[in-house]
Design a protein around this nucleic acid. Structure first.
Length: 100
DNA sequence: CTCCTGACTCCAC
DNA sequence: TGTGGAGCCAGGA
């Protein structure tokens, strides 16, 4: 399994209603300190992917896209759909715990 | 090889 | 609370 697949696996395991930061995903995938790598990997994600990429946010509890951008609104809408955010943009960060 | 870039983080002010 | 800068590291030019 390559690094990209590990990252996909971790993200795929995040339950609906739970969120995880890029840094946490990296750590859980066995790639500590490589949050940027996770971000880059997601940026390369095919548009038709089923991966819940929108459950990954920054460590500051915010969406990592410029506010008002189309990408930002797309992610916010998906989070609102599962109760992880409000239309106002406020995020309800229910931290995902990796099964230990 | 060097330089720049980025869906990131931390820490100091 | 906000901002700024340094650290981070694989890719691409």
């Amino acid at each position: 399994m390559n690094e990209q697949e590990k990252i996909y696996q971790v993200i795929a395991s995040i339950p609906k209603g739970r969120l995880c930061s890029y840094g946490e995903v990296a750590k859980l995938a066995g790639l500590p300190g490589r949050a940027r790598w996770v971000g880059r990997t997601l940026s390369q994600l095919p548009s038709d992917s089923r991966l819940p990429w929108f459950r990954v946010i920054s460590a500051q509890g915010k969406i990592s896209f410029p506010a008002h951008s189309a990408a930002y609104q797309r992610q916010l809408a998906l989070l609102i759909a599962e109760g992880s955010a409000e239309p106002s943009g406020k995020i309800h960060w229910r931290q995902y715990r990796w099964p230990s």
